[in-house]
Write a protein that binds this DNA or RNA. Structure first.
Lengths: 114, 114
DNA sequence: CAGTATCCTATCGGATACTG
DNA sequence: CAGTATCCGATAGGATACTG
């Protein structure tokens, strides 16, 4: 019936999750989906993220080739982040996930954190 | 352009991830996508999962309403797990994730674990 | 057969303070 | 402005041993 296998190492859904499963990655990708943003604007746009976690998340997404960092020479100077092509291609799967959660919000509502 | 917001608590993609982001959940859901399975068969089918993690993952998915547990009276006795309707509805978003990872396998190949 | 119970390490992520 | 550095508590998850 199914022609995929279910060993973790080979499970492709798991490789996708390696990119986006942590607390902040999808949120950052969402935020950058609107267009390039400076570090400080990102922090404002995203509620409650510490500088540590924002930097850490951006660095990881950079290594994965999902975002790109570039320094701005224009005043006021700063740093801008944007999605790469790979990053933009992530928006669709993430939105499918989001739609699923919205459609099943009630079923998911009642359960304890973990 | 985008009309979603990006605060974690409200980010629907994050609620979906709360269900599937851990190491084994998607793998278990995949495996159960083939049909009901007994505990021991699941463990065989899934490579390298400990009893502890299998049980823990199944319990969590049960609480989330994604899988259902039922005892088998027939010999040999045992326990069977199956996807609920909610669980089956998860197969699509997960496979979208999987397809994304497969399509971008090379881009993702080169990077360090974290 | 289908779990518990323990122990142990590694990483996650928040808080705070400091820097070029 | 865009980070580092440090400390800390709370999970995540592997290994092993025991149980009804």
């Amino acid at each position: 019936m199914a022609d995929y296998d279910v060993f973790v190492a080979d499970c492709p859904a798991r490789s996708a999750l390696d990119v986006i499963a942590d607390t902040w990655s999808v949120v950052v990708v969402y935020a950058l989906g609107e267009g390039p943003r400076r570090y400080s604007d990102l922090r404002e746009r995203i509620g409650g993220i510490s500088k540590k976690m924002l930097t850490q998340t951006l660095r990881k997404l950079e290594r994965r080739g999902v975002v790109e960092r570039r320094s701005l020479a224009t005043a006021p100077k700063g740093v801008e982040y944007r999605l790469t092509n790979l990053g933009r291609s992530l928006l669709e799967p993430v939105s499918v996930l989001a739609r699923w959660a919205e459609e099943h919000a009630e079923e998911l509502a009642g359960d304890p954190p973990d």
